[in-house]
Design a protein around this nucleic acid. Structure first.
Lengths: 245, 245
DNA sequence: AGAATAGTGTCTTTTAGACAATATAGG
DNA sequence: CCTATATTGTCTAAAAGACACTATTCT
């Protein structure tokens, strides 16, 4: 009940708190069980969508992205990176009010065509990396969220499929320029585990020897000389990311 | 006089035509006489600024950027590329109405604090490349525009210095990934001319032999076997960019 | 010992960079 | 011929990639 009231306030008066015509779409990504996943939520208009939200009149873009991840996942100090702004009048095209009016309870106040949410929104795309095991979806506004393998996505709202595409392209580039894998793995991990993560994100097999050499040359890792027993063969050493980097 | 009327309309009713809380800043760059220059305009609040403007409710971001370049320079089909969105409540901080009220004629209607232009604006940064000789500044709304060497900029409005910095960093990266030099040179040019352009933008000397090799390997150029006489020494060949690329 | 995977080393190819050698136009 | 710059070529170093070899652990 409280949640419904909150939503009504957002619909009719949200622009008092938030910037108009601009939103943030946050592609929240995680790695779990050798799968790379994105958090989607089921929008009231009956379509899956990237999580996102609006920008408060007192915060920066980066702060807004951080807050939105926190509100969805319960996690703080998450790695988020802006990658592109998307905008064009075809993005929502008056569909919001029409769709919402269909599903609002009969006695609810109808949403007029000139409602702020019915306008053209430019959206700033961010991608965020989280450890799936730490995410608490029940802490979000909406509980209608779930994780989807990035290779098996349903058709999404508006241009959200291409926004995710763009986020993944940016991440693939960042893999060799920033220690982003730190955000997706537990503190201690083996190099074979790290390699599998790279292979999953890049969607291709990598050569072991060359991968080891590359990781060494980047200088991001610290070898711990503890080993992890994983089978009837040599045990791999554990590593961690150098916190200085 | 017409121009003043236009400006008043923009101030009081602009949000009917344009999106609120969001703008485009267009870093218009050109190369001329071995100097790399940016087009700045002198804002009514008495500070130099990047050219920019607002997004119409019927156009995409890329279309808006194109239109804004056209309105400033008279040029069509210009290379423009989005590089980053900037936003934070400190960006304008209520200064617009205050500053404008100081300079508007006494009898003019004062701008109230809740005017749309006084709000927090997120701006989408674009950079655009033009041939300086083709630019007609008198075609713009404001004639208070001039070209500034990118290495000798005055202190600019708000965060515009850092926006230009970011545009130049993006361009430096793009130099070896997109044939951007095509937009800055005449159709036919020599390799030494191209090299000087690269050196000017990158701010460092390049090795001649290695530059030739690199340009050949990129496959962007077509050698014309016409020569250009430029002094008491071997004449360089003219080249052009392959229109297919 | 044998199987399976971890980790290291070696060789080749590609790319970047320093710099030398040759080519040509004008005086 | 001399000077100045264009263009090509050579050599070296660094990086990327293919692949072989050794190491270790469990059965």
């Amino acid at each position: 009940m409280e949640k419904d009231t909150e939503r009504i306030d957002l619909i009719f008066e949200g622009y008092l708190h938030y910037l108009r015509n601009i939103s943030i779409d946050n592609v929240i990504l995680s790695y779990d069980n050798e799968e790379f996943k994105v958090l989607l939520y089921f929008h009231p208009i009956q379509k899956w969508a990237i999580t996102g939200g609006f920008i408060e009149r007192t915060e920066t873009l980066d702060e807004a992205a951080q807050r939105l991840v926190r509100q969805r996942t319960g996690l703080d100090k998450i790695f988020s990176k802006q990658f592109k702004a998307f905008g064009g009048p075809e993005r929502h095209k008056n569909s919001f009010a029409k769709e919402m009016n269909k599903i609002l309870p009969q006695q609810a106040k109808k949403i007029p065509d000139d409602n702020w949410l019915n306008e053209f929104f430019v959206t700033i795309g961010y991608y965020s990396l989280v450890e799936k095991s730490k995410v608490d979806l029940s802490s979000g506004f909406d509980k209608e969220c779930s994780w989807w393998n990035v290779n098996e996505l349903p058709p999404l709202m508006a241009d959200h499929n291409s926004i995710i595409e763009c986020a993944l392209d940016t991440l693939k580039h960042d893999l060799y320029h920033l220690p982003v894998a730190r955000e997706l793995l537990p503190r201690k991990f083996t190099l074979p585990e790290l390699q599998t993560l790279y292979e999953t994100i890049l969607g291709k097999k990598l050569d072991r020897g060359n991968f080891y050499k590359k990781m060494k040359s980047l200088g991001w890792l610290i070898k711990l000389y503890e080993q992890k027993k994983v089978g009837a063969h040599k045990s791999p050493y554990l590593h961690m990311f150098d916190p200085e980097v």
